[in-house]
């Protein structure tokens, strides 16, 4: 017998309500109930970081949090970073630095760096590497991601 609940989550600034099975992860709720498929689920056991979203200002793994646990919280997904057609500085920097190839890991890197750079305006390369140590990318070799993060930090600091 399925155990269901009604939940309301503020996703990218908008209150969204749905009726979900309690065992569904936040990642699955975002994708399947809210059709926000920007959040990618890779490993579904907390290893790859692809599923990272920002909950109440903190980056978290959405495969390790239940949808019901996000009830009443504010969630930012990769869809919430740009302002319409205007990319967020981090997205812009990934584009310019060739910080992605297949793009599967990218939403997780963007959301992680988004919350990290909001709180650390002048990070060193080492700090950036540490911040993204919980995200796996099988394509880029990370170098361009780090370059993109350094660039984005400069732009965000200036703005």
């Amino acid at each position: 017998m399925a155990d269901n609940r009604e939940i309301t989550i503020k996703v990218n600034g908008k209150d969204m309500t749905t009726y979900v099975e309690t065992r569904l992860s936040l990642g699955d709720v975002l994708r399947e109930h809210f059709h926000l498929t920007g959040t990618h689920l890779g490993c579904e056991h907390g290893v790859c970081g692809a599923c990272t979203v920002v909950v109440d200002g903190e980056p978290i793994r959405s495969c390790l949090m239940l949808g019901v646990q996000a009830h009443g919280k504010e969630v930012t997904t990769v869809e919430g970073l740009s302002k319409g057609e205007d990319l967020h500085p981090i997205q812009e920097a990934f584009w310019k630095n060739h910080g992605l190839q297949c793009g599967y890991c990218t939403p997780g890197f963007l959301t992680t760096l988004f919350s990290f750079l909001e709180n650390n305006s002048d990070p060193t390369e080492r700090e950036i590497r540490e911040a993204i140590s919980g995200n796996i990318c099988r394509c880029t070799g990370y170098q361009n991601i780090v370059n993109a993060a350094l660039d984005a930090a400069k732009v965000m600091k200036g703005s």
């Binding site: 907390g46 970081g49 903190e58 980056p59 978290i60 793994r61 992680t112 990290f116 919980g134 995200n135």
Partner: peptide
Amino acid sequence: VGHIQTRSR
């Protein structure tokens, strides 16, 4: 302990 995303929870 883990990474920033796991320490948040």
